[in-house]
Simulated assay, not measured.
Amino acid sequence: MIELDRIDRAILAAIQQDGRLPVAKLAERVGLSETPCARRLKRLEGEGYIDGYRAMLSRKALQLGVVAFAQVRFSVHDRAVSDRFEREIQGISRIVSCHNISGTADYLLQVVARDLDEYGIFIRDVLRTLPGVTAVESMLSLREVKRDGGLPLP
């Protein structure tokens, strides 16, 4: 990986804001002509600065009114059990993010659901039945103050 210059950072900031920005507009925004801009974009993709592109969907439009953060605890810290837990959650679409954390819990999950009833059923029938899980503590989001706006650029 090479050192990012001012233009590389400007390209990354612009596409983080709008991943569908055409190269012509991107080039204009960062002060380059199209060909060098396209080359830089391709290089940034190739060097792994850009993991991929995706759309940010509306929870409201999809009627996912509950966002919860669930702290998951294990009583036994066995690598095989943790690996199995991590593999199984990959296929659960309601879990939108999962972090292995330090502290009193082992994992922090972000979960979405239509309503509290659906979330409760998910906790009872899915989350608590996963390998290794002995306790789940939920925190409900009352209001999203800041949505994932991308990573800070040095």
Rank of each mutant, 00 (worst) to 15 (best):
D78W: 00
I7M: 00
R39C: 06
V133W: 07
L116H: 15
G65N: 14
V126I: 15
R79A: 03
R29N: 11
L153I: 11
D51N: 07
A55D: 10
R128H: 03
E118T: 06
G31A: 08
F69K: 14
A135H: 13
V96A: 00
R29C: 08
V30I: 11
L64E: 13
L41K: 07
N100C: 00
I2P: 08
R54W: 08
V133Y: 06
V133R: 07
F122S: 13
G120D: 08
G132E: 00
V136P: 00
R20I: 05
S141K: 06
S141V: 15
C37V: 03
L44D: 09
D125R: 15
S93E: 14
K25P: 03
M1D: 06
K25S: 15
S138D: 13
G103T: 01
V133C: 04
E47N: 01
G91D: 01
G48Y: 02
I15H: 11
Q16H: 04
L142T: 11
K60S: 12
A27H: 09
I95S: 06
E45H: 07
I121M: 12
G65R: 14
L21G: 06
G91S: 01
L64F: 13
A38G: 05
V30N: 11
A113P: 01
Q110D: 05
R73S: 09
P154R: 13
D148P: 06
R59D: 12
D125C: 05
D18Y: 10
I123G: 01
D106L: 00
I121N: 10
L44N: 08
A70C: 08
G103A: 02
E137D: 14
V76D: 09
